[in-house]
Every structure is written in structure tokens, then in C-alpha cells.
Nucleic acid binder design. Structure first.
Lengths: 331, 331
DNA sequence: TTATGTTGTGCATACGCATGCACGATAAAA
DNA sequence: TTTTATCGTGCATGCGTATGCACAACATAA
């Protein structure tokens, strides 16, 4: 069906053997110049296209990387887009696989040898996936989150420092009654950003009112609904809100807008990630910049090393973050 | 490397032949219940995982679909995310391939039989890709745009009607001096949306001032920069702006915000696509809703039919669109 | 002239699962 | 008891490319 024409057909047309065709078309230097020319001509004439399936089986490699992403989290598109380009430069293709931090469904495609490596960006702290992949010797890198047992390479942001930086922004702006819309504690990003945030407040001697803290997923609706709750009049509302990521912050921001809560006048908001939209004038979100490009770059580098055969314990690359002051933090 | 353990090993452990293992594990009914049990046990004991590579070669199929997307256009993430889920339900995986409407680079992966089908969402009207894929009998569907020669199935929106609807929104709001930030004319979306828009204005007897028309790509910066240009004071500015998609509209909206141009007071804006963010209170973009879910659904349906062997001329499914009035159109 | 390289090709086989066909065994029908 | 199904398995081969090894042809050195 696919490649009706095989290398055997080309071989016959060119009057050589199949192996010679294979070598010639892949540019092996051992084939005579004239022979190559003849083979190339024959291949062109026959409209020959090598079978990827056969090549994959024969070479034991597929030049394909799987990325496990959380499709609920808008962040994935940012990561995937750039990753695609990075991999394309290395002649790899990208296959998408959905994964939620909670559901531990292991896509069989990850173990069947249909891919050369995996990039995990949705793992929970106690995820079992990493261990499985490792046992099966599937080259794997953790992208944005890490797990408890540090057996795998990981490329992450300095979430703790970022959480602290975020708190500092609000403190510097004079806020004392600060709320927090946090991400899941079973993710390193959720946990560390929270830890950094709390630490900074504690260092400043500010007590965090737990009534102003909301746990939720890393998405728009968490921010949206939390603001509804915090401003329902049942308790005294915060003057500032730390959000564990920009999506949450956008949700908060928009709900505040709907409720007529002035930002940052009545409510300051800081996010985390520095998504593209954060810089839009209409939103102008103060946030913490996460260097996704750098993170992706080292993730890919480490993955390639693993594919090339590097062994040994996991390496953890932590990328620095920095605050970006725009309009929503007050001051 | 990958699956050190093969079906031969399982066969030996279970005391049967390799072919029986293959049949048993795939649930062929012809294998005795007890034998199956023995094989399953052996497979589990040996930690056997079938080789996807070998299966692909042998079956002549890969259960993998490639989607060609334009990574510059934010729309792709919306499409890809949902497509992934639709395909997952059918046990297919999604592989991403970058493509620009202009550059006609044909990724060799599309022809090598490494995928079972292709969804093209970035084609230009005169693209040669469709013809190539068709000649090679690669099941293919055009997603959001179509091409001149209607040989392939396509699932698109009623862009012409949408363009008209958009113009009507602005006319109804009383605008007469209307500008337009259009997408590329070598795409069906760009051309048809423009055509519908112009047609509607013409029907209403309104003349479009070509000085207020800007052509560009379907992205944020087109909108952003065009507003800079239109309000540089060199010519009389428009009171309303038709944008060929939401990304352009967001660019326009944000630039207007920066320049202190009130929307919709000084400038009305309508977009096209109805991206998620359009509904955010902070943006509240009036736009034309495109039913991406429906479009994806029929695209996938048609693709599966082609993979199943349907032949014949291309079918074109046109999905209706409708205006969504929010806050930016004036009124 | 014999020994010693080079260079260019072909042969044979590996890769690991899927599957058409044949066959032995047990059961049902004659 | 012989015939005809039915069921369960194994054998052999296909899928199409990659590659180790052998070898012939021709060149260079001794």
C-alpha cells in the first residue's frame, strides 16, 4: 500500500543489489560515484520512497520523541511548540501523549519501542511512571516538574525562589493581607512555589491567613472561582493574591474585572510563568518569569545524551527565574 | 535494546509457538482458554511488551496520524489538543509536523508510511502538498482551509458567511468608516473572510476605504502593528476594525489599549474564531464563533473513512458560524 | 612476481510480529 | 466404525531496510 516500490525494485532497475541501493541512498561513501548516480536516477524514476516502518524496525530507532502533556493546562502549547522546533533540528519528530498529574494511566506507546525517548511534563511528585520508564530503559527526562526519587534527569525552574520573589513583590507593594491561590501539592511546582511563598512571608514576619488560601488545579477556573469565593463577603477579603501560575491569575483577574474589583487598586495579583499574554496591555500581569526556552533546551540536551547512551544517576538542572513587574501588583 | 523479551521468549516459557503467543495476546478467539491463561502468565512473568516497531511493519499500519500545523498561529494548540483526544478514542496517536502556508517543505515523514493519515491545517490555496499526498495515496483531510483543486476531503467553516456577519455587526452598530486587518489572500480563510466582509459592505452601499485595509499574517503582531499605523495620524482613522481572526484582534485591542484608544468608544473591533480568551471579561471580544469541535469531528470521521478505504472525490463539509456579541463592537 | 592493500558490491541474515495454510485431535453425525 | 465438522496449534513466510562479512578487481609496495 504505502511504498509499493521497494529498494529491491530500485536495485533491479539499477542493476545492483538491494544492499547497494540502501547504502547508496543513505550516502555511504563506500559506493562508487557512478553507481550512486545510477541508483539515484532509478529511484527517482520509480518514485521510490523508503519505508519508515521498515527502517524503524531494522535500525531499532524511530527518531520520534513522545511528550506527555496535560491538555488541561494551557502551558502545554507553549512547551510543545518550541519543543517541536528543537527536536526538528535534531531530525526527531514529536508525538503527543495526554497525561494528567493524577491519573496514572501509562500509555502503552511509551514502552513499545515506538519512540526513542520521553519528555514528561505532568508528573506528580509520587508518580510511578518515571520508575517504570527507567526500569524499561526508556530514555526519559522530566521537564517542568520533578519527582521524589531523583533517578531521572530533570529540567525545572527555581520554583521555590520564584514563590519567594512573588511574595516579596507583594510585600514591597505594601500588602499585608495576602491571599494565595495555590496549585496541587502533589506536584513539585505546586509544592515549591507555595513553600517559597510561605517562607518569604514568614521571614518578613507576616502571618498568612489560611482562610485566604485556596488549593486547586493550575487552571483559569481555579482563579476565577476562588475570587468569587474570597469576595463573597463572608470574610474579610485580601488586598493581594499570589497565584501559583498565570492561568490561575488570569482567572482571578477576569473574575475581579467582572465583579468590579479594581486591580490593583482593590486587589493586587501576581502570577507565575510569564506567559505571552501576561505582557498584553489589557492584562499587564505582574508575574515571575520562567525561562521555558532554557528549560526545554537542557531537557532536550539531556534526553539526547541518554539516547546516546549516557547512564548514571539523574541530573537536575534548576533554571533561575526573575520577577516581572507590570501593572497588577500594586505599588 | 527496547524489548529484549520477544514473543519467542514468551512462547518458549509457555511451551507454545510464537504464533500462538501473538494470537493469544491479541485476543484471537481461536486459542484455547487454558493456553491463553498460560501465555498471559508467562508474558507477565517475563515483563513482555510487544514491539510497536515490529507490529507496525508487519501490519502495515501505525495507528499514528500526522497533523501539519502552523506553529506561528496560536490556533493550532486549540486544534491539536482536541484532536489528540478524538484520535485517542480511536486508538490513534498524534504526531506534530510544522508547516507554514508559504514554505512548501514536504516533511519526508508524511510519505514514508510512518503514519496512517494526515490532517493538513496550514495549506495555502495553491499548495502542492495535497496533490502529492493524494498521488501517494496517503489518506488526507484538509482541516480549516481548503485548496483550489477539490480532490481531498475538507472540513472548514463558512468563512464567507462569517466575514459577512462580522461586517453586519459593525454596520448594525452604526459604523461607516470601517477598516480591515486581513489575513493572507493565499489561504482560503483569508480570502473568504475578506470576500464575505466586502460583499456585505457592498450590499449595504458602504464603500471600503482601501487606505484602511491592511494585509498580513494571522497573528497578534499584525493587529498590533496595523493599529499603530492606522492611528499614526497620517490619515483619518477608522471607527471600527474587522479582523480576520481573533489573534489579530487581540493585537489590535492591546495596541489600542496602549495608545489610549478606547474600545469600543473610539474604535470598535470584531474578531473571528471565538478563541477562549475572547470570552474573558478583560477582553470581551465580539467575534464570530467557529465550531472547531464540529470541524475536527467531521475531519476525523472523513479521515477514518479514507483510511478504511473509501475512495472517490473529495467531500467538503462546511460548518456554519455565528456572531458572538460581546463588548468590543460598539453598539 | 609475490605480498599487501584499497575499493566497490553482493550475499545472507537480523529485526519481531502477523497471518495463510496445514494438520492432528477430539467431537458430532451417519 | 467411518465420515464430516470443529477446534486449537504450529510451520513457514512476509513486511522492507540495515549491515557484518566475504570476495573480486585493481593498485601499490617489496
Amino acid at each position: 500500500m504505502t511504498g509499493r516500490v521497494t529498494s529491491f525494485d530500485v536495485a533491479e532497475a539499477a542493476g545492483v543489489s538491494q544492499s547497494t541501493v540502501s547504502r547508496a541512498l543513505r550516502g555511504e561513501p563506500s559506493i562508487g560515484t557512478e553507481t550512486v548516480a545510477r541508483i539515484v536516477a532509478a529511484a527517482a524514476a520509480l518514485d521510490y520512497v523508503p519505508s519508515d516502518r521498515a527502517r524503524d524496525l531494522s535500525r531499532g530507532t524511530t527518531k520520534r520523541i513522545a511528550m506527555v502533556v496535560d491538555l488541561e493546562n494551557p502551558l502545554w502549547s507553549l512547551l510543545v511548540g518550541r519543543l517541536h522546533d528543537l527536536l526538528a533540528d535534531l531530525s526527531y519528530h514529536l508525538t503527543l501523549i495526554a497525561g494528567h498529574p493524577d491519573s496514572e494511566v501509562l500509555d502503552p506507546a511509551l514502552l513499545g519501542g515506538g519512540i526513542d525517548g520521553v519528555i514528561l511534563s505532568t508528573v506528580a511528585l509520587d508518580s510511578t511512571l518515571p520508575a517504570i520508564l527507567q526500569r524499561r530503559s526508556v530514555p526519559t527526562v522530566l521537564l517542568q516538574r520533578y519527582t521524589e526519587g531523583g533517578e531521572l534527569d530533570s529540567s525545572v525552574a527555581d520554583d521555590r525562589a520564584g514563590g519567594a520573589a512573588s511574595a516579596q513583590i507583594l510585600l514591597d507593594a505594601g500588602h499585608r493581607r495576602i491571599g494565595a491561590l495555590l496549585g496541587p501539592r502533589n506536584t513539585s511546582t505546586g509544592r515549591d512555589r507555595e513553600a517559597g511563598f510561605r517562607e518569604c512571608l514568614a521571614d518578613a514576619g507576616i502571618e498568612l491567613d489560611e482562610a485566604l488560601v485556596r488549593m486547586g488545579s493550575f487552571d483559569f477556573s481555579h482563579g476565577y472561582e476562588s475570587v468569587s469565593g474570597l469576595f463573597s463577603g463572608e470574610t474579610e477579603s485580601p488586598t493581594a493574591l499570589f497565584c501559583s501560575n498565570d492561568s490561575i491569575a488570569f482567572g482571578a483577574l477576569n473574575r475581579a474585572c467582572e465583579l468590579g474589583i479594581a486591580v490593583p487598586g482593590d486587589l493586587a495579583i501576581v502570577g507565575f510563568d510569564d506567559l505571552e499574554q501576561a505582557s498584553w496591555a489589557t492584562l499587564s500581569l505582574s508575574t515571575v518569569h520562567v525561562p521555558f526556552d532554557d528549560m526545554l533546551h537542557s531537557a532536550v540536551t539531556m534526553l539526547m545524551e541518554r539516547i546516546a547512551g549516557r547512564t548514571g544517576l539523574g541530573r537536575r538542572v534548576i533554571h533561575p527565574v526573575y520577577p516581572v513587574l507590570r501593572s497588577t501588583h500594586g505599588d
